[in-house]
Simulated scan of single mutants.
Amino acid sequence: MSDQIQRFLFDQTNVRGEIVTLDTTYAEVLTRHGYPHAVNVLLGELLAAVALLTDTVKLDGTLSIEVRGRGDLSLLMAESNPGGELRAIARLDEEGVLPAEDASFRELVGEGQIVITLDPKEGKRYQGIVALEHETLGACLEAYFSQSEQLPTRLWLAADGKKAGGLLLQRLPDASQNQDVDAWERSVHLAETIKQEELLGLEQREVLYRLYHEETVRVFDPKALRFGCTCSRERMTRALHTLGEAELKDILADQGEIDTQCHFCHTKYHYTAAEIEALIDNPDAPAPTIH
């Protein structure tokens, strides 16, 4: 029952929710890197958050969350798409001291901002930014929803380096006369009682039963989640082109060729001098391939 997200709603109310659990997907991200425990915990929370937000906005495209900090942890990023593929990375200050295992969100990132990017397959790209003014990742993301004047949203996130999970509640536009107008406050109050060990250790339906056994909850079929990277030779080629002709030629003069790799999955890409010269001369040509 791990690696899935499940939608639910409360009948006769204007409240809906989602619950996510990550196990193998989370492990796939962590095994590709050697981050300290405190960073692994935050990555788990961010993975759960990006899965919840992607399913909430129902975006036909990619959603990414970037935490840009001025502390020892300068970047925390997770990305998701409607197919249920997730990926994430972190960037620590190489000159900084390794953080304590129990270092908090604020201790790791310091001041900074969260950038949420919606990149649909069709239509305009949207980006929202909110300052890091709260003590937890979940509270900062709630502030984003509040600032962007979207629907009232609450988040509960948890991770321990092995499993990650999250719960999201959202209030839809004003209830009609036939709906339970107190449902939002009641559902949030009950969710505040959730413990990390319950969110990480219990099946999703069991969590919902413990919280809302006195409510009428309609639970939908779960959607599977998995680790997936969207890197490709074509995308890497476009990224190299952004370096500019002068820098590319400097690298060739120094190294004779270019080797690079995806930061998310560590897939390596090799470019010969001839391929880089072709990229400089004709940047709109298809990505060169090795035969």
Score class of each variant (00 low, 15 high):
D180G: 04
S148L: 06
D250V: 04
L225Y: 01
R186E: 13
T267Q: 14
P222N: 10
Q261E: 13
A103K: 00
D180S: 07
L86H: 01
L43A: 10
D254G: 03
D3C: 13
H134K: 13
M1H: 14
G44Q: 01
I194L: 15
G166Q: 11
S232V: 12
E203R: 12
L243D: 08
I276Q: 01
V50N: 02
V67R: 02
M77Y: 07
A246V: 06
R125I: 10
E247M: 09
V29L: 05
D119Q: 11
G17N: 11
S2C: 08
G71D: 07
D160F: 07
S64F: 00
E18C: 06
K58H: 09
D284R: 09
T31R: 15
P120E: 09
F10S: 08
D23Y: 02
R154W: 02
T136M: 10
E215A: 15
T216P: 04
T62I: 10
R238Y: 13
W156S: 08
D60V: 12
F10A: 09
I290R: 15
R91E: 11
V15I: 14
Q150A: 07
R68C: 07
A239I: 12
R210V: 01
G123F: 11
N178A: 11
K195A: 13
M1G: 09
V130M: 06
L240A: 03
D23A: 14
L157A: 04
S80G: 10
A139E: 09
I65D: 00
N81Y: 01
H213G: 04
I276H: 01
R233K: 15
E214H: 13
P152D: 05
D93H: 05
T56P: 00
A49M: 08
I280K: 03
I194S: 04
L22T: 06
N81E: 12
L47M: 12
K162E: 15
T193E: 14
Q261W: 01
E94G: 06
L199Q: 01
D284M: 09
L141S: 08
K195I: 10
V39N: 00
E206G: 02
